[in-house]
Every structure is written in C-alpha cells, then in structure tokens.
C-alpha cells in the first residue's frame, strides 16, 4: 500500500492493468469437498490467488480451557505457505496472520450456530498456496464453503470481497500491483441475505465519500462471490454421483 511508482494503474479508457473494468472482479472458481480426511473442505482460485480450506469438527475441545458450555469454539487459522509469495515468506505465525485469523473467526462466529455443540471446537484451517492480493477475502470465502461442506449448521454463508483506490478511481477487487501501489484497500465480508457486515477493514486513506463508494462496490463483489459459493456447493451433488 502506498508505495511510490510511475505505473499508471488505470489508463485513459478506464481499463486497469490486467484489462478489467473498474467494477470487474477477477475470475473466481470454487470447488467443494476436495480433501478426504477433513470433515469439510474447499479449494478456491481467485485470479492468481490459490487457497485451500479444511474444516474439522465439531470435536472434543483441546486445549480444554477454551471449551465453553454455551457453544462450540471456532478456531480459525490463516496461514501462508512459504512459497506463496515471490521471495519467501518466513513460515509460521506472525502479526499479520494472527490478525487475519482473529477477524475471520469473529466473522464466521456470527453465522455458525455454535450453540448446537456445547463444549466442542470447530477447526477451520486455511492455507494460502499462492498469494496475489486479497487473500483474507479469498480465505474467508473458501472457509465458509468448507464449513457448509462439513455439514455444520449456519444461519447463512459469509461472502467476502475487497474494494480499494487505485490511481484516482475506486475499484473492485484489487490486484497485486493495485494493492502495492494503490492508495487504499477495503476488505469486507457480508452475510448475503441480511446484508449484515461481518468484516470491514481499511488500509490507506479514503474520504468519507470515497469510503461509501468503496463499500457499495465491495458489497457488489461479495454478492458475486456468494453466487460462486452457491454454485460450488450445488455442483458437488449434481446429477448421479459425488464427483
């Protein structure tokens, strides 16, 4: 964010570096039920982002002190593979992944009917295999599909997408260069049917007016992501067998 460069992020015709219009999302593809061992799983490709999500549980809560008689404890783990970025990401937890895990966990807590499973835990592991801006949104979108695939009761899905400011325009779903050299990034997650916002962050600077435009645009993006989630889950049991 905010790095200096001479790159023109948006050309005279209003096209972006990768040829997208300002309100166009990168191509999104989701597949549900890709892992044998997990109770639920999903694989997602969003532009050049590649993310795999696995859900285990509800199962016995370990460590024990995290168990709650009021409901299941969600444990969300966002992790980037060392090979997911150019150069190398130092493996393991860091400030950034801890933050993303926390906010994504809180977002999902709003929809999962945790009260059905007191004293248990639900593990959600999301591994970023290839990163290209917007991975927290990609991860949360995949995690939501994996949760549904695990048969865990939820009020609704959680769909996520980002908007931001590149050059002087508010654009949907920032790409890597737009993220690095743009002016602001607003990742957002919503509950599609109620429109409730369950995740909202901002990196960079936006005027109140710009912020509102970005939010409207991101909401639109979330709905597009939701349609893909729906497609992925319905495709798993289409026609004859599981395949």
């Amino acid at each position: 964010m905010g790095m200096k460069s001479d790159i023109k992020l948006i050309d005279a015709k209003g096209k972006r570096l990768d040829g997208r219009a300002i309100d166009e999302m990168r191509p999104l593809k989701i597949e549900a039920g890709v892992l044998e061992q997990a109770d639920g799983s999903a694989y997602l490709e969003w532009g050049n982002n590649k993310v795999i999500a696995a859900v285990y549980g509800p199962r016995e809560c370990l460590p024990r002190h995290k168990a709650s008689p009021y409901g299941s404890t969600l444990m969300y783990r966002y992790n980037m593979a060392p090979f997911s970025v150019d150069d190398r990401k130092r493996p393991g937890r860091d400030r950034r992944s801890t933050e993303i895990s926390k906010i994504s966990e809180e977002a999902l807590n709003k929809v999962v009917l945790t009260e059905r499973f007191p004293n248990s835990m639900i593990n959600i592991n999301v591994e970023v295999l290839q990163a290209d801006a917007g991975t927290r949104c990609a991860a949360l979108t995949a995690a939501s599909v994996a949760l549904a695939d695990a048969g865990i009761p939820m009020k609704d899905m959680v769909a996520s997408c980002a908007a931001g400011k590149a050059g002087d325009h508010i654009v949907l779903d920032l790409g890597k260069l737009e993220d690095n050299f743009g002016k602001a990034d607003v990742p957002m997650a919503i509950v599609p049917h109620t429109g409730e916002i369950v995740l909202l962050q901002m990196d960079g600077d936006l005027s109140p007016k710009e912020f509102k435009t970005a939010m409207t645009l991101a909401t639109k993006g979330c709905m597009m992501a939701y349609e893909e989630q729906k497609k992925a889950l319905k495709a798993k049991y289409k026609g004859g067998g599981k395949k």
Binding site: P58, R59, A148, D149, G151, I152, P153, K155, D156
Partner: peptide
Amino acid sequence: VYANTYGLMNKREDAVSVVPLEGK
C-alpha cells in the same frame, strides 16, 4: 423459512425441512 444446513430440501404442503448431506 431459510435453510441452516447443506442438504436436500423436503417440501410438503404444511412443512419444509432439510435432510443433511454431510455432518458429524
């Protein structure tokens, strides 16, 4: 009335339910 589970819908005249496709 909304679904809260991933499954198959069972709709009758007076009631609707969802039979889960996955789950513990």
